[in-house]
Design a protein around this nucleic acid. Structure first.
Length: 572
RNA sequence: CGGAGCGUAGCGCAGUCUGGUAGCGCAUCUGCUUUGGGAGCAGAGUGUCGUGGGUUCGAAUCCCGCCGCUCCGACCA
């Protein structure tokens, strides 16, 4: 490809709209153009890189036995009402009506459509297991799109779905996808690690996210360096440390005035104890019913965990009126004497001398033995795990790192196949419900994650596998020096006939401009053909990542480039 | 939805406080010179100053409404 015939425009300066490195670089290198918030055009250069990611995904999906299909992005709302997700996905779905007035949505994901398709298609155990996938544009009305492709209103996703005869068989399908994901991200030049994750609105009982470590990542990951445990902060568990207040106070509970104390800090000060000795009591409305959650005063309740334990679809903090009806005035709430379910965090286990709200404005109760409260419905792990909390497996302190979620695999069980009555006949002629799994990769996000993990001060450093072009040839003196033009011509031809994708920068620009652009866009290999290099016996072949370069005769340049490329591929 | 900031040429910005009819750098076009790390000189083009209204002899500038963008938070497969 000739540079002069493509639409490539690079920027000298960082665009004002971009915050993180990968977003700045993708705009500066001319891979993306913004149409509006969360909506981007892929330029000819950008779409080449995108297609390379897609091809890697296709190859690995096919190798794992999945079949590619393509489903409509535009979907009738009825499917979503059938699964019960019309309200659960709620505001994040783009909704519209056709001219007949039928309610439609732009698909944010495809569990409903695929289950509808498969339940009509499959009727026998002989047709199972079956895994299908598609690469398609998804639409989500994100509250706050940000960081370019990282969180966009419209993005490309690879979504796969497995259908099996049993939970055991579904585990095997899950494992096959999990393994394929590890290969996909590795081939993209990404360091991505699986972590245990919350299943959120997709549902199901077990999932792993594939996380790319990056300071700009939107998720927190708790990890144990000793045993390898890793989990999203939304889901991470911990082994609670023994309570510091394990000694029971012989005098029994005692109500104390705490005028004006509404926060944990104020209550602690008023009573004269550390904040950890306060029990934080929170009222939530779970599908409309009040529940109380109690945690140590310094901890934060984790709504994802509580929602999962309660098994409810909607969980919101109660307002002041609801709280007062369920227990007492906000700021003085406590578990003593309440008649609603109380969920206690396991961190309070063994805590026998604590301070709780008195359910009376301006009063707290001290010396409360939380460990033996009869009001407690269940002991659960319901707080957000913090750095230095102990690993639930081995008990070592954990740390938090930031990560970008590029993939997510779910064991769905029968959530959707039940809703759609997706049954098959087994060998005993029994009608049984299929067991499902679903598996997503954010393709456009993955592309940006590759950039986020591969750049230096001069620009992007593409892994060979996803570079828009593997090689850039820079003829520096082609106008004046026929030998230079001829050498460049020959190298490009040789590379093309070797099946290597190459772009030649034939613009009438000074050398400095060509060097800067080549570095910024980040082609893995650069071949410089100039009068000076020819004088030294050839052309300069240089690797973007290491800066390592050699001068070789033009006739062996293609061979040398080819060797370098395979070496770089192996390095990943 | 709450908080903050921004909207002036393709991109990055100044001008706004203190009202007088729009400027700088890069990019673009022409010519000459230059040619291994974002060249120099000379010339040229480029704007509903986000938008609607108001105040005023006069508004990019002051006032009010709206829209858009970015960040933080809430929220979110």
């Amino acid at each position: 490809m000739r540079w002069s015939r493509t639409v490539i425009s690079t920027l000298r300066e960082d665009p004002q709209e971009a915050e993180i490195a990968s977003h700045k670089l993708m705009l500066r290198a001319g891979l993306l153009k913004k149409l509006s918030g969360g909506l981007y055009t892929f330029t000819p250069l950008g779409v080449r890189a995108l297609h390379k990611v897609e091809e890697i995904i296709r190859e690995e999906m096919d190798a794992a036995g999945a079949q590619e299909i393509l489903m409509p992005a535009l979907q009738p709302i009825e499917l979503w009402e059938k699964s019960g997700r019309a309200s659960r996905m709620g505001a994040s779905m783009f909704r519209l009506k056709d001219r007949q007035g039928r309610a439609m949505v732009l698909g944010p994901t495809h569990e409903e459509v695929v289950t509808d398709y498969i339940c009509k298609e499959i009727s026998s155990y002989r047709q199972l297991p079956c895994t299908i996938y598609q690469i398609q544009t998804k639409f989500r009305d994100e509250i706050r799109p940000r960081f370019g492709l990282m969180r966009a209103k419209e993005f490309i996703m690879k979504d796969a779905y497995s259908f099996d005869v049993s939970f055991e068989a579904a585990d095997a399908s899950y494992k096959a996808m999990y393994d394929a994901y590890e290969r996909i991200f590795k081939r993209c030049g990404l360091l991505a690690r699986p972590v245990e994750a919350d299943t959120g609105a997709i549902g199901g009982n077990h999932s792993h996210e594939f996380m790319v470590p990056a300071p700009s990542g939107e998720d927190g990951i708790l990890e144990c360096q000793k045993c390898g445990y890793a989990a999203n902060q939304e889901r991470a568990e911990r082994k609670p440390a023994p309570s510091k207040f394990a000694e029971e106070f012989s005098g029994g509970p005692e109500e104390v005035p705490t005028p004006g104390a509404h926060t944990v800090a104020e209550a602690a000060e008023s009573v004269g104890v550390p904040e950890e000795q306060i029990v934080k009591s929170l009222i939530y409305m779970a599908d409309g019913n009040p529940v109380m959650a109690i945690v140590e005063g310094t901890r934060e309740l984790n709504e994802c965990k509580l929602r999962r334990i309660l098994g409810c679809s909607e969980l919101v903090m109660a307002d002041d009126v609801q709280s007062a009806e369920a227990a007492g005035p906000v700021g003085s709430i406590g578990p003593l004497g309440v008649r609603i379910p109380v969920y206690a965090d396991i961190g309070l286990r063994g805590a026998k001398d604590m301070v709780v709200g008195a359910n009376r404005e301006g009063f707290h109760i001290k010396h409360v033995n939380v460990d033996s409260l009869s009001e407690i419905t269940a002991w659960e792990d319901i707080v957000t795990v913090e750095p230095d909390d102990l690993c639930p497996r081995c008990g070592s302190p954990m740390r938090v790192v930031r990560g970008i979620e590029v993939g997510h695999v779910f064991k769905l069980g029968t959530k959707y196949t039940d809703a759609f009555n997706a049954k098959f006949l087994d060998s005993e002629k029994n009608s049984r419900v299929m067991v499902m799994g679903c598996y997503g990769i954010g393709v456009t996000r993955t592309l940006q994650a590759v950039v986020e993990q591969n750049f230096d001060k001069d620009g992007i450093i593409w892994p060979v596998s996803v570079a828009p072009y593997s090689v850039v040839v820079l003829p520096l003196d082609a106008e004046k020096d026929p030998a230079c033009a001829a050498a460049a011509e020959r190298i490009v031809k040789d590379l093309e006939s070797a099946g290597i994708d190459v772009i030649v920068d034939d613009r009438d620009e000074r050398p400095g401009v060509k060097f800067k652009d080549a570095d910024l866009i980040g082609f893995p290999v650069r071949v410089v053909v100039g009068t000076r290099s020819l004088g030294k016996g050839g052309v300069e072949v240089r690797m973007r990542r290491t800066g390592e370069s050699v001068t070789v005769p033009p006739e062996s340049a293609a061979q040398r480039v080819s060797e370098m490329l395979s070496r770089m591929r192996e390095d990943f």
